[in-house]
Nucleic acid binder design. Structure first.
Length: 231
DNA sequence: AATTCCAGCAACCGCAGCCAA
DNA sequence: GTTGGCTGCGGTTGCTGGAAT
């Protein structure tokens, strides 16, 4: 039997969206809001699958999207979140205002993966890419340190990062997070809430963004700085 | 100048999860 | 408890433009 397709594909257009199609979709969604995606193409006068409309809207047409390359701070945040969450792009994207899961996934696959490999870090495990026979008796590696030193020579104050201590003799790996106490936390605990994220201080630096750890004594000022810098 | 190669990115596909009937 | 529909997610594909030959 099998499932029915999400929509009747016969006669539907595929491939790149035209400006006219974009305009129709934007106009419809701004006028009516997001309702059931299945009905959107019909109501908006588009020969597209509802899924395709949702994707186009969420990834490219939404007015709150940021475009362009990820800033250094965003890149570091993505790396850190990936070390905690793995390929859960939507969860990672939720921590980066104005960025989409698809955008981050693409950026990871095309830029960050290569960069990490070049740095000697396994992009999957975030462990150092060192042949087993070359490992010291015991060592401590920090993605924070490696990433910070390799991504930029500027003095970053970002304090996000995961520290891996492992001992080949007993194959034990100890994972520590500079912000978070344990990788074993349930997601709701070890992920930052949006409020936590908003407390970070976004500083414009020669066109690049940078996250700074907030001064706990002046949280309100830091929060406002972040918002101003970001938007 | 023409051709080939390759990186980057937009878009598609299939599956899983959720929810209502 | 089961079934079917819808939405969202993650992996993958394929097109495009720039670089290399």
């Amino acid at each position: 039997m099998g499932r029915q397709p999400c929509c009747e594909k016969v006669g539907l257009k595929k491939g790149p969206w035209t400006p006219e199609e974009d305009k129709k979709l934007i106009t419809f969604l701004l006028d009516n809001g997001q309702c059931c995606w299945r009905a959107v193409p019909k109501l908006a006068g588009l020969l597209r699958c509802g899924k395709s409309c949702r994707l186009r809207w969420t990834n490219y047409l939404r007015p709150d999207l940021k475009r362009g390359l990820l800033s250094e701070a965003e890149e570091k945040l993505v790396i850190d979140l990936h070390s905690q969450l793995g390929n859960r792009w939507s969860k990672i994207a939720a921590r980066l205002p104005g960025r989409t899961d698809n955008e981050i996934k693409n950026y990871w696959n095309t830029h960050i993966k290569k960069k990490l490999k070049k740095m000697g870090i396994d992009p999957i495990t975030h462990m150092p890419l060192v042949p087993e026979d070359q490992l010291p008796a015991s060592a401590t590696f920090s993605t924070k340190e490696i990433v910070s030193s390799c991504l930029s020579s500027s003095s970053s104050t970002t304090t996000i990062g995961t520290t891996w201590s492992f001992s080949p003799t007993n194959s034990s790996v100890k994972v520590e997070n500079n912000q978070l106490e344990s990788m074993e936390w349930p997601e709701s605990d070890y992920l930052w809430g949006m409020d936590d994220f908003m407390r970070w201080h976004f500083v414009s630096k020669e066109g690049e963004g940078e996250l700074k750890c907030p001064d706990p004594s002046n949280q309100l000022v830091q929060e406002e700085s972040w918002k101003v810098g970001l938007f």
